[in-house]
């Protein structure tokens, strides 16, 4: 009986987290398309519902009623597993995101490592999809994205080390609490810029969307997918983008802390602040997508390995020597 009640209460908590995440993914897709359209002086989706808000819902319905085509020469099990892996990995990482001091599903000691590990597993969905399709465009797209995601993960890892040096803990709530006086975006601003650009590359967003460069590779690893399986890739991708925004706001923008600790601001719950910060970063993502042309592949690799990695490593040395010299190293 005890186990049953635990299982029920935990399932309730998980649903209470995942349903809003999925709904906000749908809304965020609409927001992305609207911003993209406004930058280009178009209207964007504005027909279904007020301001076109229900467009994503209509799209989802359309995908659901489309036929799922599995290519006859594909590796069927892996072909079906790939979108499931992408979607699952995009959703399980939300378990550790703290929405306030107490509102967190799993307050684990190694929260940031968990986030990093899950985001580094994200590449498998793409490789599996590309390989199992047994077709050249998906395969090329998968290989490109594998190389790209592995490269940019390295610099994200080094940036995380920078933040951890200032915090002295791997727990996400501790990272947020360490920014009570000063958000890390101020002392670590160059790292925030590199993190933002690496996050764009990690989630295959423009200008780094080479895995699905439509002019060269049709749709990259998604070429053979149709119907609900395609929609799952798509949902997983946007959930990952939101997750990267959440990670950026926790590491650099103070997570659920309010910008100023004075009376009217402290009334607003932390979850609202976190959502506002995630939305701010997402709007930046959308603006970048609308304004910047796509990188060439060798330029992408050069940027990751020859510019971001040395810069981030140098900054680790700088941060640790500064903290050591002024005796600011966290001691807990």
């Amino acid at each position: 009986m005890d186990y049953l009640s635990i299982i029920f209460s935990e399932t309730y908590k998980i649903l209470f987290l995942l349903v809003p995440v999925l709904v906000s993914v749908a809304m965020v897709v609409w927001l992305d398309r609207r911003i993209w359209a406004f930058v280009q002086k178009r209207q964007g989706p504005n027909v279904v519902g007020p301001f076109g808000l229900l467009q994503s819902l209509a799209d989802a319905l359309k995908y659901m009623f489309k036929e799922v085509i599995i290519p006859s020469s594909s590796n069927k099990i892996i072909f079906i597993l790939a979108p499931i892996v992408t979607m699952t990995l995009a959703l399980i990482s939300w378990a550790v995101i703290p929405f306030s001091e107490t509102q967190v599903l799993a307050d684990i000691n190694v929260g940031i490592l968990y986030l990093f590990a899950v985001s580094s597993l994200g590449v498998y969905g793409i490789i599996m999809g590309g390989w199992a399709s047994n077709s050249k465009y998906p395969f090329l797209g998968a290989i490109r994205s594998a190389a790209q995601m592995v490269s940019y993960e390295v610099s994200i890892g080094v940036i995380i080390i920078n933040v951890l040096l200032c915090v002295g803990s791997l727990n996400l709530n501790d990272i947020v609490m360490a920014q009570t006086n000063l958000w890390f975006i101020i002392p670590l601003f160059p790292m925030f810029v590199i993190f933002f650009i690496s996050a764009l590359a990690e989630t295959n967003r423009p200008p780094f969307d080479l895995p699905e460069a439509e002019a060269e590779l049709v749709a990259g690893y998604q070429t053979e997918y149709s119907g609900m399986m395609y929609a799952m890739f798509w949902l997983g991708e946007y959930a990952n983008i939101l997750l990267m925004c959440a990670m950026g706001s926790i590491l650099f923008l103070g997570g659920w802390l309010s910008p100023i600790e004075i009376y009217p601001f402290t009334l607003i719950p932390g979850a609202i602040w976190l959502i506002l910060k995630i939305l701010f970063l997402f709007i930046l993502f959308a603006l970048v997508k609308a304004t910047v042309p796509r990188y060439r592949y060798d330029q992408l690799m050069r940027l990751g390995w020859k510019i971001f990695l040395p810069l981030a490593l140098t900054w680790v040395v700088l941060t640790s020597s500064y903290l050591f010299y002024f005796n600011l190293l966290p001691t807990n």
């Binding site: 684990i108 000691n109 190694v110 490592l113 968990y114 990093f116 590990a117 580094s120 597993l121 590449v123 498998y124 490789i127 390989w131 395969f139 290989i143 594998a146 190389a147 592995v150 993960e153 890892g157 791997l170």
Partner: peptide, 24 residues
Amino acid sequence: EFLGMIMLIIYVGAVAVLFLFVVM
């Protein structure tokens, strides 16, 4: 938990990706 996460990051996230790459 630290060893478990490092195992995921290094072996699954990096080494096995390269294995898969080469094998494919």
